[in-house]
Design a protein around this nucleic acid. Structure first.
Lengths: 347, 347
DNA sequence: ATGAAAGCGCTAACAG
DNA sequence: CTGTTAGCGCTTTCAT
């Protein structure tokens, strides 16, 4: 990884402000950082001078000297994905009023790359790290990351994640199992019996948990979970298109497609439309997440709402709150949102 | 603005690595930063020790000592908005391979807040600042920002923006005028004569430019631009809903609604559907931007495609490239994407 | 209430 | 090729 260095030349230092205001460096520092021990008059004068001169403090120097950090790191799969951009929005909403800057980086759902990004954030001495991407079912793939994050925490760093990870840290847990069950029961109650699931990689805990909910729903209705085909593809719009095509070919009798996220559902909807297959007339489609556009599609998408913005807010609050001995879990609910893409099977 | 400080305790320093490897601080530094002047053997040993010990360099210290920066700032209106999240994705794709971290912050389309964020980024000593939000027609509202950014550049900082700003810096310019003209001509060629524009605030250069393109298109067809009503609302989905309602009330004969971004178009589509008005049967609707979902709506949205991811990539490349005396402009094209939401008027 | 001075962890001359 | 040393700009004891 090439490291691009951007050189900076000299700017105003606190020393310059101090001289201009006729005080010592220490007094100037106290005045600007609001530490007590300076007369109001002097402090005001210093602040005025600083403003006139257009002084801006060097946060690197401040961090180094004070040993504090005013920034947090956020690891997402891909910021262009609405699920993650809504989470990021929540994180930013909590960070800004607290005077914290947010460094965002991509993991690309690749544990190696995620580790690399985490290391970079640690090197940047961020005060907290938030991991928003899905966890992995296989605990081993994140074991190095786990170790590094633990060490980071030993040194005062804060960590919190969204979803089920094997990282041993505070977590915000979306209700994936119950959501999967709810949407399954919805399809079942409509009368569907020939359902196909289109899904992202089962290596992701998000997928595993949602699948587990689907199985629960099926079992609860006395059905054999194994009788329902699960077509695995990329956890994206393109993956949804591919998966629904495959489903059509291998299971032509299917009356409902249960997508494990909205992205795949949107892809499925688009593919079905281009194939001239009516939704929900011939096939019902459901999603998961309730991204902002879900309600504006046509047919509008029946899905499981997860409060992404709130999850982003909560996860940073969790990271910033006083650390506890044992990892905390904050569950956030789900809500089945029934719209127009699901209906009773026609036959 | 409260400043939340996160305290850190002692971690491994380069000095510790140097001692463990039995070399001096300087040699250790050279070994790890890849500076020449160290024998390969020694450098390897130092790197090995560093890895064993789990050493991660303190980037604040490095920045302070070397006067370089390995991070860039990105100012967006709102990261949850697909237009900006796609741009952010492009920025991240260029930043990561260059070893740069990206700090993202919200401007909320508020010049005051934008200025605040820019100041924070400067204080953070980012090597480059990218402003992705729209500019403002009134040059005065950004004059302070302009001055601070110029000073920042004097000190070696790099700046680039997306869109037409009065900031005197390098810019990536989307083809808003031509795009506005293209979509207008499309509607006109379909036979529409009673068109209404739904628009965000005219204070934004993005809006002003697109409006200008619309007027050009109208004039080119021998029509009076002033005869076309422009309904101004928030530049969001909710704004689109409100604006289309207002249009319906004040101009009931309208056969086409030209929205100045996809967000408003999506809101309009949604409102028209809930009002039982057929699109494009009774009213055609067009958007602008071509966000990822535009093609998956139903009816799929006719819109003007702007290459957001590419714009994000380009703007950071521009910022990172060697500075020139005069601001550079990189134009990016547009593409009219005709889909199902527009058709010839029925009457 | 104010000032002097000692670092924070690292890089970059400058010696050798 | 390697080590010594002086800062980078700021905060923070410790004196006064």
């Amino acid at each position: 990884m090439a490291r691009e260095k951007i050189e900076r030349t000299r700017t105003l230092r606190l020393q310059d402000v101090a001289e201009a205001a006729g005080v010592s460096l220490a007094t100037a520092s106290r005045s600007l950082s609001g530490t007590s021990g300076v007369s109001e008059a002097v402090a005001d004068r210093v602040r005025a001078t600083a403003r006139e001169l257009g002084y801006v403090a060097n946060l690197h120097a401040r961090s180094l000297a004070a040993g504090t950090s005013a920034s947090v790191g956020l690891v997402v799969h891909e910021i262009g994905d609405p699920y993650f951009s809504e989470i990021a929005s929540g994180v930013l909403r909590v960070a800004a009023p607290a005077g914290l800057t947010v460094q965002i980086c991509h993991s690309g759902r690749d544990p190696e790359r995620e580790l690399e990004q985490i290391r970079m954030l640690i090197a940047n001495r961020v005060g907290a790290i938030v991991v928003a991407g899905s966890g992995f079912v296989d605990a081993a793939v994140q074991s190095t990351a786990r170790a590094e994050l633990q060490a980071y925490r030993q040194n005062g760093g804060r960590v919190a994640v969204i979803g089920r990870h094997h990282l041993g840290v505070d977590a915000v847990l979306p209700d994936n199992v119950a959501g999967g069950r709810a949407v399954t029961e919805h399809l079942l109650s409509l009368g569907h019996r020939r359902i196909a699931v289109i899904s992202g990689s089962r290596a992701l805990t998000t997928v595993a948990d949602r699948l587990r909910g689907v199985a629960d729903g099926l079992a609860g209705a006395g059905l054999d979970p194994d009788s329902v085909p699960v077509v695995e593809a990329e956890f994206t719009r393109a993956g949804g298109k591919a998966a629904v095509l495959e489903t059509l070919a291998s299971h032509p009798g299917v009356t409902a497609v249960l997508a494990l996220n909205d992205d795949m559902a949107i892809g499925a909807l688009s593919m079905l439309r281009s194939q001239g297959i009516a939704v929900p007339g011939r096939i019902s489609v459901s999603g998961f997440d309730d991204v902002a556009v879900a309600g504006d599609l046509s047919p509008s998408l029946t899905t499981v709402r997860l409060p992404m913005v709130e999850m982003g807010e909560k996860v940073l609050q969790l990271a910033l709150s006083d650390p506890t001995d044992r990892p905390r879990r904050r569950r956030v609910g789900h809500e089945l949102v029934v719209r127009d893409s699901t209906a009773a099977p026609s036959a």
